[in-house]
């Protein structure tokens, strides 16, 4: 318990240890720690950047998808419109064609009527002539009276 030279010895020893620690122990360890800290911070920043980029990409993808959907619906709308137009056109064509066919049929019917009428007229003329023959009891010369007969047929 006596105070002696140990006191001075301890002070000097302590000073030497502190100096050694200051010169050779502390700096490399703290440097390593600082470097690792920086590394980790960089890594975290990179990760955050990556996440941010991913978010951006997702947003962009969503936009593209929206655009594509819009375009698709536009195309569908146009196609529908076009289909309607085609149907309308077809309807118009069909109607024209039907009219044409009807007109043709009408004309044919008219012709047929006329022919029938002509035929009837001929027959009436023949009948009339045979009737007249019977009435007159004599033969009417067809050739002699052809003009009058034709006139008669035309009046019928």
């Amino acid at each position: 318990m006596n105070i002696n030279l140990t006191l001075i010895g301890q002070s000097i020893t302590f000073a030497i240890f502190v100096w050694f620690c200051y010169a050779y122990v502390w700096p490399p360890l703290v440097a390593a720690l600082t470097e690792r800290q920086k590394k980790i911070a960089d890594g975290l920043a990179a990760a955050e950047r990556g996440q941010h980029e991913q978010e951006l990409a997702e947003k962009k993808a969503a936009e593209y998808l929206k655009d594509a959907k819009g375009q698709a619906s536009d195309i569908i709308n146009q196609a529908q419109k076009r289909a309607n137009e085609i149907v309308d056109d077809a309807k118009g064509d069909a109607r024209t064609e039907a009219d044409r066919i009807k007109a043709g049929a009408d004309a044919e019917i008219e012709q047929e009527i006329n022919r029938a009428r002509e035929h009837l007229r001929q027959e009436v003329v023949v009948l009339a002539i045979s009737g007249a023959e019977k009435v007159l009891k004599r033969e009417v010369d067809k050739d002699a009276h052809a003009s009058s007969l034709n006139e008669l047929a035309a009046q019928l």
Binding site: G9, T13, F20, C21, V25, P28, L29, A32
Partner: peptide, 24 residues
């Protein structure tokens, strides 16, 4: 003196070894 120097050197030896091999 012996024990304090012995322990001090032990401390510095261990820490110096770690300091030499310190990497990030």
């Amino acid at each position: 003196m012996f024990w304090s120097i012995f322990l001090g050197v032990l401390f510095l030896w261990i820490f110096r070894r770690a300091a030499k091999n310190a990497t990030a």
